[in-house]
């Protein structure tokens, strides 16, 4: 594997539309549940342990067995009860595949003999396929996916709450060991049947996303 390739995939500047999403933070700020730096930390920890673990596990599994991408995609549908979050995840998956086309080719197992590669899937599955195409291993896909589950919300926190960007990045540094632990757990389970993969849910993110989707004016798409 190439460490630099991993950095390219994990870079927040990858033009895959991630900046348009707050990862559920905007709804929780509006609900008054996230007001300061300590709240942002608690939010990020919970998100990493739930959605972050699921994203890491599905990215690792898609990287390990790309031919099963459709089953993995259905597994994420079953783990994403909120329609607004399914829509956001698919929009980000589409954007990632579009950006990825000019970077690496998808694994051969994904591309039908005749026809074009799939363009519609959940973001973690797309992430895992792209990682496989880039020659990365499941564990690397998992670490980048777990990390990526927190960075979008962290940068959104700076904009939504006017927090000190240095302090917010300090939170991400504090979460790095937990990110590593979650990625190791996710990678260890990457061969499990889809139903046995992690399914940790976040009730407030689901509820918040559904309310957020009805707002007329919002800063972030989700």
């Amino acid at each position: 594997m190439s460490l630099a390739t991993l950095l390219v995939l994990a870079d927040g500047r990858l033009p895959a539309g991630g900046h348009a999403h707050s990862g559920g933070l905007e709804a929780q700020v509006a609900a008054g549940r996230v007001k300061d730096l300590a709240d942002v930390y608690a939010f990020l920890r919970g998100k990493l342990a739930t959605g972050g673990l699921v994203a890491a596990a599905f990215a690792a599994a898609a990287c390990a067995r790309p031919a099963e991408w459709a089953e993995l995609d259905a597994g994420l549908d079953a783990r994403t009860p909120a329609p607004a979050l399914r829509k956001a995840s698919r929009a980000q998956g589409r954007a990632l595949l579009r950006a990825g086309r000019s970077m690496w080719s998808l694994p051969a197992a994904v591309v039908p003999a005749s026809g074009t590669a799939p363009r519609e899937m959940h973001q973690p599955v797309a992430f895992g396929l792209l990682a496989a195409g880039a020659g990365l291993r499941p564990h690397e896909a998992a670490v980048a996916a777990a990390h990526g589950s927190t960075t979008g919300s962290a940068s959104a926190a700076v904009r939504l709450l006017g927090l000190d960007p240095f302090a917010v990045h300090g939170l991400l540094a504090r979460l790095a060991p937990e990110c590593d632990r979650i990625a190791a757990d996710a990678a260890n389970r990457s061969a499990d049947p889809v139903d046995d993969l992690p399914a940790a849910g976040s009730p407030l993110l689901d509820i918040g996303a559904e309310h957020h989707a009805t707002w007329e004016v919002r800063l972030f798409a989700s």
Binding site: F43, G46, K47, A200, S202, P203, L204
Partner: peptide, 17 residues
């Protein structure tokens, strides 16, 4: 769906969960 609460569930009482 899985939900964990208590000391061993990281972030369960945070505003994401």
């Amino acid at each position: 769906h899985a939900l964990g609460v208590g000391r061993h569930a990281d972030g369960w009482d945070g505003p994401a969960v």
